[in-house]
Write a protein that binds this DNA or RNA. Structure first.
Lengths: 303, 303
DNA sequence: TAAAAATACTCCATAGGTATTTTAT
DNA sequence: ATAAAATACCTATGGAGTATTTTTA
């Protein structure tokens, strides 16, 4: 029977990530020789080298690569076993890694954290803001427990739960205040300011306006909603912002914010977690608390 | 970070299987206190009891049950990491657990073992004979590396490889020798002898003859092909046997064996293994050697 | 009260630390 | 020549053994 230890897999993963015995050892909070020995032992039991030792950095051998995949899966499964305990406890406690997309995070995180502290005082919240793609990766790798993102996602390994619907609002320069609200379909002709590549809000907006980035030369980009609103205030163009950003982003800029008169676009925001996460039930309760914060004005559930 | 060891999971699995600290310890080749301590430690790190201690036997708590599922998955993944090494070696070696369905095993195992010893001398073959359902379970649990069964199976976690086609032959009492071969479709009117419930060969035969067990009161059952042939020899009825059983089973019985004149029924025999088994490539080579034994007379591949 | 698990203790294997040498560019 | 990994050696944690006590139907 093969005698590898979880410890060896942990060290090996660190070595793969850092590509350097010394730094990997540091990451594992052990000395470099200690890590070297465990790697050596792992190589011995497998009967083949796992890394190629270079003078400046080490790289994985093909066998090392395949082991890495399997090791990650095992380490995730082990971590989930650890979470079994927390799931069994009457009250959820310990660190909870929670992620949110950038177009929501700055406006929603404060109240989410406040509400979760109220409902689950034993929880130690570790918030993170990233784009959807990163959040999904982090969820799957077990570095996040739950993420708040826009639906739909269609990832079979993730559980999704819709929380509330959010409107897209039109932001125009102050000079437009007297003009009528343009129709959504006419926006492709305007100078539209949108978030840079990778933000789901950008894709949603493009989708609603029926725009492909190439076909619209007057499209301009910003890296945050705040920037966009400021640029609109400086008469550079129009933009869309999610409802949630309204109170904060329009405070410091002189802009004209309007709903559309018809075909008001919206997106649905939901919570996501690994289906295999033993904390599932707790995460559902947490998601419900988060959803309740917004569902008063915007109820998705008919409760 | 949770500090669970693979050792603890192994011991816990043994305890779950045996329901008894002493016997589980024996199965793990350690002393009872050693196992008790590891279980206790596991319970401590998870913060909740995993087993309910009874005076005669222990039973898993609900948490223990869920842990068991996850532990098995982890242990299987670890075992597969162990197999990575063997897969990396130039020549496949070590123990290979191979299963076969009962209607093939007695006739085919000898030549399969002989051929595999020739081609893979470092392999230590561990053969087992079981019905399809059991073989599938054993494959998935990692207690079998490869199984030879009838297609189709449609199990998404298993890789299948067709090896050869095998005919179903009609076995009649010696008195029928002068009579013409009945048509396959007329067999449901005859006194048909078939294998008992659970053999895939039985289901295949029923299927070919368009019989449902209930609708045919003259159906009789035996627990082995050998029994069936002997009963046919004793004029008790007719039967079907797979081609492969022919040389052995008809040696010691005075029966009349015939192919059908039309609609000759066949089944396809194939090899199966876990898709995640790192030995996959080796198992493919092994399966090819097995298939080559029969594909001379019965080629499935157009080689 | 009897079978079985928990506890007490002792021992040894091994993970980890520090100091040092070897290696490869 | 230098950064980095391997080796040597020591220490200490903890896993396993034997003997014994506690538990509970």
């Amino acid at each position: 029977m093969i005698n590898i230890s979880i410890r060896q897999l942990r060290y090996f993963e660190a070595l793969a990530v850092h590509g350097h015995f010394g730094r990997a050892a540091e990451a594992c909070a052990i000395s470099q020789p200690a890590l070297s020995l465990q790697i050596k032992e792992l190589e011995d039991t497998l009967g083949a080298p796992l890394v190629e030792r270079g003078p400046r950095h080490v790289t994985l051998t093909p066998l090392g690569e395949t082991l890495m995949h399997r090791a990650r899966a095992i380490l995730l499964a082990v971590q989930e076993v650890g979470d079994l305990a927390r799931a069994a406890a009457s009250e959820i406690s310990g660190p909870l890694h929670i992620g949110m997309i950038p177009t929501i995070a700055p406006y929603f995180f404060p109240e989410v954290i406040h509400a979760l502290r109220q409902h689950f005082p034993k929880l130690d919240l570790v918030p993170r803001e990233s784009k959807t793609k990163t959040l999904v990766e982090e969820l799957k790798a077990g570095r996040l427990d739950i993420a708040i993102m826009a639906l739909p996602l269609h990832d079979p390994s993730l559980q999704e739960m819709a929380l509330f619907e959010e409107e897209f609002l039109l932001v125009r320069p102050p000079s437009h205040r007297s003009q009528p609200v343009p129709r959504l379909e006419s926006l492709h002709k305007a100078s539209l300011l949108l978030l840079e590549e990778g933000h789901c809000f950008r894709d949603q907006a493009l989708d609603f306006c029926n725009i492909t980035p190439d076909s619209n030369p007057s499209l301009m980009e910003g890296s945050s909603l705040s920037t966009l609103v400021q640029m609109v205030g400086a008469e550079i163009g129009l933009s869309l912002i999610p409802e949630m950003a309204l109170p904060i982003e329009t405070q410091s800029a002189d802009v004209c914010v309007s709903r559309f008169e018809q075909n008001q676009p919206t997106r649905i925001i939901g919570a996501f977690w690994r289906k295999t996460n033993p904390l599932g039930t707790s995460l559902e309760a947490i998601a419900k608390v988060i959803g309740a914060l917004r569902s008063e004005d915007n109820p998705l559930t008919s409760a």
